[in-house]
Design a protein around this nucleic acid. Structure first.
Lengths: 148, 148
DNA sequence: ATATTAAAAGAGTTTTATATCTTTTATTTA
DNA sequence: TAAATAAAAGATATAAAACTCTTTTAATAT
């Protein structure tokens, strides 16, 4: 559904949002290591998010990426829009050029419901909601969970 | 979700199933032209489906691909399994290596429901069901619909 | 000012998915 | 049996996605 790149983006932003209270910037090295994502690749992605205004960054010593005041209030949809574009929510399941109520593929109806549910979820869920889940210990961004 | 290749596979099989009553084999040229899918590429895909026993083929004059007696009764899941593998139904939405109830990502629960719904649909829907929809004129495999 | 730090930017590589071309093999028909 | 047909198979090409490396730019601290 969403690209791997876009998953990285969401995880990156949520990671920054988790650190928000600490007020300090986070270097790409730390983010990448923590999330187990290739550093330079994640760097590119974060840069794109900065360009789109979703997060902020500062160069130089003590610089890094950071969640700005609006970051946590953004719905996930905006990150998807920034990275993959919203087109991914309209793609035909069977790969036809277009798929709509006028000229549906045989799976259109079955998956339209589902597709809409996903879209709604991305519209409704905010970065802050994911942060809350993680802070409650209900989920995690990486696989390094405690073994005991 | 499923790959473009897999969408081609489903459309190819359904196309054959539609022609089943005519009892004649269908050449890859015709299938590809009708469905607007690159000919040689679709050929490869159909060959794979023949190897997996989902459809049949015969070489030589008047040869071609055809739906065998079991084809129409197969659930879509089997085509997905043959082309993409069932792993696609368990991929983490955020691209983490694994994602399960033990160590879920913050989107796991939201999408697990949806993922299961999709999987169920693929398990329940049979090739014959798609054929019926198309025969009823409710949907189509290509974009060449009548304009008036 | 200078050295240092860290993101930004640019260019390049690798991998995977998608697509094409050519040759071979099996089958049929004349 | 020879010619024709059409899938199978093999090899290759292209495109997109994912990832890496190097240089540049901006900011800071000494």
């Amino acid at each position: 559904m969403i690209s791997k790149t876009c998953g990285y983006a969401i995880r990156g932003v949520v990671f920054l949002a988790l650190e928000k209270n600490s007020k300090k910037k986070v270097g790409i090295h730390e983010i990448a290591e923590e999330l187990q994502i290739p550093k330079h690749f994640l760097g590119k992605i974060m840069q794109e998010l900065v360009r789109k205004g979703i997060i902020g960054s500062i160069k130089g010593p003590n610089g890094g990426f950071f969640a700005n005041s609006r970051t946590v209030h953004r719905p996930l949809k905006e990150i998807v829009e920034a990275i993959d574009g919203l087109g991914i929510f309209n793609k035909c399941f069977l790969g036809r050029d277009e798929c709509n109520a006028n000229n549906p593929c045989p799976l259109h109806d079955e998956f339209d419901t589902c597709r809409n549910a996903i879209f709604k979820t991305f519209e409704n869920l905010k970065i802050a909601d994911l942060v809350t889940k993680i802070e409650k210990g209900e989920s995690s961004l990486n696989m390094n969970y405690e073994l005991f």
